[in-house]
Amino acid sequence: MGGDSSGTVHAAVLPGERAEDPWVTLRTCVIVPALNESGSVAAVIHSVHTAMPGAQVVVVNDGSTDDTAHQAARAGAIVVTLPVNLGIGGAVQTGYRYALRNDFDVAMQIDGDGQHEPSEAARLFGPLVAGRADMVIGSRWLGRGDYVAPPSRRFGMRILARLVCWRAGGVFTDTTSGFRAVGRKGIELFAEDYPTDFPEVESLVVASRNGLRIEEAPVRMTHRQHGRSSIAGLNSAYYMVRVIVALLVVSPRRRNQ
C-alpha cells in the first residue's frame, strides 16, 4: 500500500542515487528512541534536519532520568515522553503510532546515540520511493563505511542473519540494525504489532510474515558517541540464546494474516 503510493510519486528515483527530496514529497517522520541520550540527541536531531529538511523528528523519551526531553525539544523535535520505561520495542512502537495517527507516508528509525548518520538516509528512501520495498534496512555490512566489530560480535550477528534469513525468507546481513525506514504499510503494521523483546531482529520476521517486501541498503555507521550497546559483555551470550529462542518459538504465532 505504502509502496505503490510512494512509487507513483517518485518513480523516477533510482536506488542508491541521492533522491532529490523524497522527505519533502512524502511526509516523513523520523523516530528517535532515546533513553538517557542527552549527550547526543540534540546533535542527531540537528543532523536529521540538515539531511532531511521537512522531515519531522519525533523523539520517544523512554523514561530518561537526564534532560534528554529538554535537549530534544530545544533542538526542534516533537518529544513524546513515556511516563514509565517500556524498553526499546515499546518506545519505537510509540513512534509508529504517532506516525499512523498523523498520517505520515514514511517512518524512519534512527538511534538517538549518534550511531546512525542521517546523511545516509537517502539510501533508505531509494527502494521505498521506487516502490520496490515496503521496508528498507540500513546495513553496515554491504561495503559502505568501515564499521568494525569484534569477531565474537560479528559471529553472533552472522548467526542471527542466518536465522532471520531462514525464518523470514530473503537475504539479510544486518539484522540488528536499528536504522530503517518503512512506508505506509509498515507504519500500519508496526503501530499494531511491534515485538518488544528483540524488536530489530523480530520485526523483520513479523514484517515478512505480514507480506512486507524488505530490502537492505548499504549505509555507513559510526561507533556510538555516547552510552553503551544494550547488547554487550556477558549479556551477549544470554542475548543470543534468548533471541534465538524468540526467533524459533515466538514468531510463528504472529502469522495471523
Binding site: V80, T81, P83, G90, Q93, T94, Y98
Partner: peptide, 9 residues
C-alpha cells in the same frame, strides 16, 4: 503508557 505519552505530547 504509549497512549499517555502521545496524549501528553
Amino acid at each position: 503508557v504509549q497512549e499517555i505519552g502521545l496524549l501528553t505530547a
